[in-house]
Simulated assay, not measured.
Amino acid sequence: MNRFGHIDLRVNDLERDLPFYEKLLPELGFTRTFHSANWKVFAADGELPSAAYFAITEDREHRPNANLIGFWAQDREEVDRLAKLIVEIGGAVNDGPRLFPISPTYYAVYFEDPCGNKYELLHRLN
């Protein structure tokens, strides 16, 4: 059972960062939106509150750190395709996409949103 519930993410400039997430999150399966004045919520399939969701709010004092959020990819081609998209929509690729020595099939890209929050998109067979 995947126990993931949701992420409450802070960015320091919502106007700058929201377009990045509006293009990336649907590609990761967060296709439904439930926005309010203070929160931009992107949900996966299923009924809230049990459906996984990704919520974003602005905190002008937010400073990115070494925390990292990882997403599964269906295959290496998806990792490659989304790595290109990340750059096109204003993110930064820090490493990859490539095989990493974590396991023989660990294929990933490490990246940041325009705010500097860190992510990984990976595919592995074992």
Rank of each mutant, 00 (worst) to 15 (best):
F4K: 07
A108F: 01
Y107I: 02
F4C: 08
E112S: 15
A37N: 10
L68G: 02
Q74A: 15
L25I: 05
R16L: 09
R32L: 05
L121K: 03
F30N: 00
K40G: 04
L28D: 02
I56F: 03
L122E: 02
E47Q: 13
Y106Q: 01
H35R: 05
N117E: 10
P49N: 10
P64D: 08
P49H: 10
A37Y: 11
V93I: 15
P49V: 10
N65E: 12
K118H: 12
N2I: 14
D8T: 06
I7Q: 04
F100R: 10
S36A: 11
E77Q: 15
A55V: 04
H62P: 08
G116I: 08
A66H: 11
W72Y: 11
P97I: 02
Y53E: 09
I89E: 03
V109Y: 02
N2D: 15
N67S: 14
H35F: 14
V109M: 00
F4T: 12
Y119C: 06
K118G: 05
V109H: 02
G91V: 07
T31H: 06
A51S: 14
L99R: 08
E15R: 12
N67E: 10
N2Q: 12
G116D: 06
R10I: 05
S50A: 12
R76V: 01
P49I: 10
I7W: 03
L18Y: 09
P104D: 05
S50N: 12
A52D: 06
Y107K: 02
H35Y: 07
A44K: 13
R32Q: 12
N126V: 10
N126F: 08
E47H: 11
I102Q: 10
V79T: 01
G46Y: 12
P19Y: 06
L25F: 03
A55P: 03
A73H: 00
G90K: 08
F34T: 08
K40H: 14
E22C: 07
P19L: 09
D59Q: 14
I69H: 08
F54G: 01
D75P: 02
I102H: 14
N67L: 11
Y119M: 09
H35P: 02
D113E: 06
P97M: 07
D80Y: 07
Y21E: 06
L9S: 03
P49K: 10
K118A: 12
R124M: 14
D8R: 08
F34M: 12
K23W: 03
Y110N: 00
